[in-house]
Simulated scan of single mutants.
Amino acid sequence: MTPGARLQAAIELLDEIIAGAREGGAAADTLIARYFAARRYAGSKDRRAVRELVYAAVRRFGDMPASGRAAMVALADEDSAVAAMFDGSPRGPAPIDPAEVRAASGRVPAWLDRALTLCGLDAADIASLIDRAPLDLRANRLRTTADQAAALFPEVRRIDNVPDALRLPAGSAVDQTPAWRDGWIEIQDAGSQMVTAAARAAPGMQVVDLCAGAGGKALALAAAMDNRGTVLASDVDRARLSRLAPRAERAGAAIIEPRLLDPNREADALEDWRDRADVVLIDAPCSGTGTWRRNPEARWRLTPERVERLVATQRRLIDVGAALVRPGGALVYIVCSLLDDEGASQIDRFLADHADWTAEQPIPQGRPRGQGRRLTPAHDATDGFFVARLIRPC
């Protein structure tokens, strides 16, 4: 592909991503994969170059641009290499007309910039939310040790106080390596590993992962428990939960029991676990403001109304999870959000309604926020998270 053809492909992809954000369609990564699956002529260098152009634009504009071309025209004003690709070549975009309107936007939508500032984040914290993330791995102690896994990757870095975490440069390909195939490693952000450790899972425990998704945290819990005890991994999303079984088999995690739940009827399906769990971990659905480094187009999908709906769901799930905790057990609440409405304020609300429950420090990392801890890319070099650990009275 010529440089102009690469830019035209990026413009077409951005148009699809913008439409997807407006209409609740597929995520950017999925759209990019589909685009190139239908264009086998594009080589690996072409795909990489187009992807980099797409994400340069997505990261640059906090507010959704009017079109892919509008975004790239504005980007061309800042990058002479992009400007040179508007060359009018047969498969490239038409040259820029001086009269074309340039997209104007900060890196974060204005309403979210205000909201995050009110939640105590400074300019460096907010700017770091759209930096490109490294690739973090978790060494699976059911198969290997962190030292053995680290020895397989020349560019690896270890992360202080996260014993199983390995960090590789962004874009590293690991899913075709023997270490991946044999279940030695899982892709998991170091921050996700930190907040999962707030469960303090130990062999023999009975643990519920209430919003398990595809099971990343359930796998980490099973490893921490040395395959002794039970991890009930439940979710309402059949497609995501279906990915857990093959992952668990590859990882050698034999104590995970998947359970599909009906939305808004989770308590009924979990009645057999009432007052039984040593730990209930709730990685609640949220705005994802802490994961923009990996999903920057998510900024375009978020609205105040959607946050309100998520807050209501989180509140309900906390109450569902609390009913499963045995006397003396723990409820661990996690969101990959930096908005207090989804984090610290949720815990304040719960404790106001359950005065006999107590909060304790969940993890040593991060900074205090309300009754929990908060991780940010700028301060902790991880995705953004809020985590709290609550104890039910005996």
Results as ranks from 00 to 15, higher is better:
11 I>F: 07
13 L>W: 03
13 L>V: 07
17 I>H: 11
18 I>E: 05
19 A>C: 04
27 A>F: 13
27 A>P: 09
29 D>C: 07
43 G>T: 12
45 K>S: 14
46 D>I: 00
49 A>K: 03
49 A>W: 01
49 A>N: 11
55 Y>H: 11
56 A>P: 03
63 D>Q: 01
67 S>R: 06
69 R>W: 07
75 L>N: 08
75 L>W: 09
77 D>V: 01
80 S>D: 12
84 A>Y: 04
89 S>L: 06
93 P>S: 08
94 A>M: 08
103 A>G: 10
112 L>F: 06
113 D>V: 05
116 L>E: 00
117 T>L: 07
122 D>W: 00
124 A>V: 11
127 A>H: 03
131 D>E: 13
131 D>K: 00
133 A>I: 07
136 D>C: 08
139 A>F: 05
162 V>H: 03
167 R>K: 11
170 A>C: 11
180 W>Q: 10
188 Q>A: 02
190 A>S: 15
194 M>V: 15
197 A>N: 10
202 A>V: 14
205 M>D: 06
209 D>G: 02
216 G>S: 05
225 M>C: 07
229 G>V: 11
231 V>W: 15
242 S>H: 14
243 R>S: 10
243 R>A: 15
246 P>R: 04
247 R>L: 13
254 A>F: 04
255 I>C: 08
264 N>S: 12
270 L>I: 00
276 R>S: 13
289 T>M: 08
307 V>M: 06
322 A>F: 01
323 A>N: 12
324 L>G: 02
331 L>Q: 01
332 V>I: 11
333 Y>N: 08
348 D>E: 15
355 A>S: 13
355 A>W: 00
356 D>N: 05
357 W>L: 01
367 R>K: 11
370 G>A: 02
375 L>E: 08
378 A>P: 01
378 A>R: 00
381 A>V: 02
384 G>D: 02
